Simulated assay, not measured.
Amino acid sequence: MDRTELADFLRRSRARLDPSDVGLAAGARRRTPGLRREEVAALAGMSVDYYTRLEQSRGPRPSRQMLAALARALRFTGDERNHLFHLVGEEPPRTDGVSGHVRPGLLLILDRLYDAPAQVMTDYGDVLAQNAMAVALGGEASVGRNVIRRFFTEPRVRALFPPEDHPELARSHVATLRAVAAARPDDPEPARLVTELRAASEEFARLWESHEVAVRRASTKRFRHPTVGLLELGCEVLLNPAHDQLLIVHTARPGTESHERLQLLRVVGLQDLTPSADRH
């Protein structure tokens, strides 16, 4: 691992980005160009101290998952992501099968959706990138985690939705995963997730046996946010050409109570994601 080169690459990459490039407000005038360390850490889902040590050439060896998160946070191209992996002494991810690298153009679209919760995920539910509104809606960053696994194994995630909606959401998750697993029998990731959840969740195992099949499409979802209350949001699903990555966008119809609450969430929720001091 070349800590000196890694630190230099991270610092220069951070300096090239403006807050607007990643969907953040500029805020107060900045003494130096680029994103703050706090902002990169939040986008990558890591602690500020951990990221700071990487930039100071004294951090531990990042995991492959952490490297992928940094590549997304800093909006790396495929070549830049590969260089990042090489600096740490890791082989870059293979490009065959489902790619975990989100193209910069798709990330640019994600960042421009500053007033709507949006995220990019694989077709079997791994979250690859989120904008700030998605984090505000869900209460924490979900990049690197799987929405289907979390729904069936984490009570806090289920609590984001009204209890009366749980049965339909569960059926939809299972039916989607079955469709993906059947469409790509040689891909080990969906099959591995199915095996794990059949052992971990009695509810998932029961629904899996019903053999329902569905592809993720536009729908309406209700969210229970602890600050702004209940939101009823339209869920639009946009496919990339290979159909292995999805852009999920949640919107509210103008003039509705949910639209007003979504606007409030943008103000209240994003305050927690903005650094309190103008420092690097």
Rank of each mutant, 00 (worst) to 15 (best):
R11W: 04
S172C: 08
R103P: 10
A175P: 04
L247I: 02
L84H: 00
N146T: 06
A200R: 00
R94E: 09
A69C: 09
D49R: 09
A205F: 07
V143P: 04
S20T: 14
I248G: 07
H259V: 13
L137V: 10
L230G: 03
L246T: 15
G45N: 05
G45P: 02
L108E: 11
D186W: 01
R224V: 07
R58Y: 10
E209K: 15
A44I: 03
P226I: 05
K221F: 12
N146W: 08
P19Y: 01
D18E: 07
G59N: 11
E212G: 14
T52Q: 10
P93T: 02
L54P: 01
R192T: 03
Q56G: 13
L128F: 05
R36C: 01
D115A: 10
D79M: 00
F161R: 10
D18T: 06
P163D: 12
H243S: 15
Q271N: 13
L169T: 06
A28G: 06
V147S: 15
D111G: 04
E91M: 02
D244C: 05
Q271W: 14
E257G: 15
R217A: 13
G138N: 09
A181G: 05
R192F: 03
R184A: 04
E202K: 05
D2V: 07
E232S: 15
T227G: 07
A252N: 08
L84Y: 03
E202M: 04
Y50S: 09
N146A: 09
R16H: 08
M133D: 01
T52M: 13
S99E: 13
L160T: 07
S142T: 14
G255Y: 14
G139N: 05
R206K: 04
L137Q: 07
Q263N: 02
A242E: 00
T176I: 05
Q271D: 12
T52L: 08
S258Q: 09
R103T: 11
D111S: 06
Q271G: 12
A218Y: 10
R3M: 12
I109G: 00
V88R: 04
Q56N: 15
D18P: 03
H250N: 13
F151M: 09
L35D: 12
A159I: 12
V88G: 05
Q263H: 05
Q245H: 03
